[in-house]
C-alpha cells in the first residue's frame, strides 16, 4: 500500500512539473498555432537565471526566483520579437517555425553551457535543509509541495485572468481566428507578444522549481518540453484545463505504470501514451 501511495505522490509531483510547462506551451500554441520547441529553452533560462541571482548576486530565494521568472518571460518575448514574428509575418509554414524553434533551443542550450558549464547544479543548497512531510505513508518535500501548489495556483489565476479581462477575450479571439481579430482592431502582434511573455514566465517558474527539487543542467530543456507537449496533446491541444489534466494524467501513468515494469521504461511509456492518443484521440481529452 505504501508503494502505491508513494508512486501516486511521485506521479502528482511529476504531473505538476509537466503542467507548468504544458500551460505555457498550450497558451502559446493557442494563439500562434505552432509547436514552439524553444519553450523548453526558456525553462532552462529560468533555472539558470535563478542560479545566477542566487550564486553571483547573492539574492535570497524568493527575489531570485521572482527575477528569474521575469527573465524567462523576457527571453520568450525576445524570441517572439526577433524570430517568430518576422517569420509569421512572412506567412511561414508551421514546419518552418518548428525547425526555427528547434534551432533556437539548440542555440540557447549551447550558450548556457558555454557560460555556466555543462555540469549539473542542485539549487537546493541555497535553500537550506529540506523538510520532509509524511502523507498517508508516502513522503513529500516542501519544494515538491510548492511545485504542486504553484501549478494549481498558476492554472487557477491564469484561467481567471483570461476569462475576466479584456486581454483574455482578445487572446481567445486571436485563437479563434487571427485575421478576423486583426480586422476587428485587436493589436494581435502585441497581444501575442504578451502571451509569449506570460507563457515563458510560467515555463521559467517550472525551470526554477525543478532546479530546487533536483537541479539544473543545460540539457534539461528538451526532456521537460517533450513531456509538456505530450501532456498538452493528451489533455487537449490549445486548452489550458486540458494541458493540466493531461499533465497530471501523464505523471500518474508514468509512475504507476512502472509498478510492475522496470523503471527504465518510463520514457517508452510516456511516448507510447502519446502515440496512443495521437492515433485514437488526437484532439485530446478536453479539446477546445
Amino acid at each position: 500500500m505504501d508503494l502505491f501511495v508513494q508512486l501516486t505522490i511521485n506521479g502528482v509531483i511529476a504531473g505538476a512539473i509537466y503542467a507548468l510547462i504544458a500551460l505555457g506551451f498550450a497558451l502559446i500554441f493557442g494563439v500562434t498555432k505552432f509547436f514552439n520547441l524553444a519553450h523548453g529553452a526558456v525553462a532552462v533560462v529560468g533555472g539558470y537565471a535563478a542560479f545566477f541571482f542566487l550564486e553571483h548576486a547573492g539574492l535570497g530565494v524568493l527575489p531570485a526566483a521572482a527575477l528569474a521568472v521575469c527573465v524567462a518571460g523576457m527571453v520568450g518575448f525576445a524570441l517572439h520579437k526577433t524570430v517568430f514574428l518576422p517569420l509569421r509575418r512572412r506567412q511561414a509554414t508551421n514546419l518552418v517555425l518548428l525547425i526555427a524553434a528547434l534551432g533556437l533551443l539548440t542555440v540557447i542550450q549551447a550558450l548556457i553551457a558555454m557560460f555556466f558549464g555543462s555540469q549539473f547544479h542542485p539549487l537546493s543548497q541555497f535553500a537550506g535543509a529540506q523538510e520532509v512531510y509524511r502523507i498517508a505513508g508516502g513522503a513529500i518535500t516542501l519544494v515538491q509541495l510548492i511545485i504542486i501548489i504553484s501549478a494549481l495556483a498558476v492554472f487557477g489565476l491564469l484561467t481567471l485572468f483570461l476569462k475576466k479581462t479584456k486581454f483574455g477575450k482578445a487572446v481567445k479571439a486571436i485563437g479563434d481566428d487571427e485575421e478576423v481579430a486583426q480586422i476587428v482592431g485587436i493589436n494581435t502582434h502585441a497581444i501575442i507578444g504578451y502571451v509569449f511573455f506570460i507563457g515563458s514566465a510560467i515555463a521559467g517558474l517550472g525551470g526554477v522549481l525543478v532546479g530546487f527539487d533536483t537541479g539544473i543542467e543545460p540539457t534539461m530543456g528538451l526532456s521537460l518540453l517533450l513531456k509538456g507537449i505530450i501532456a498538452a496533446i493528451v489533455g487537449g491541444v490549445g486548452s489550458l484545463s486540458g494541458a493540466v489534466l493531461g499533465a497530471f494524467l501523464l505523471g500518474l501513468a508514468e509512475n504507476l505504470g512502472i509498478w510492475h515494469i522496470s523503471g527504465e521504461w518510463k520514457d517508452a511509456i510516456a511516448f507510447g501514451i502519446l502515440i496512443f492518443f495521437l492515433i485514437w484521440r488526437p484532439r485530446g481529452i478536453l479539446p477546445r
Binding site: I99, A100, L102, L104, V107, Q109, A110, L111
Partner: peptide, 24 residues
C-alpha cells in the same frame, strides 16, 4: 575545449534558425 564542443552545437542551431529566416 569547453567552448569548442558547445560551439559546434551553437553553430548548428544558428544555422537552422538563419536558414529558416533567410533561405528555407
Amino acid at each position: 575545449s569547453n567552448i569548442a564542443a558547445q560551439m559546434r552545437l551553437l553553430l548548428y542551431g544558428l544555422a537552422l534558425v538563419l536558414l529558416m529566416i533567410y533561405r528555407p
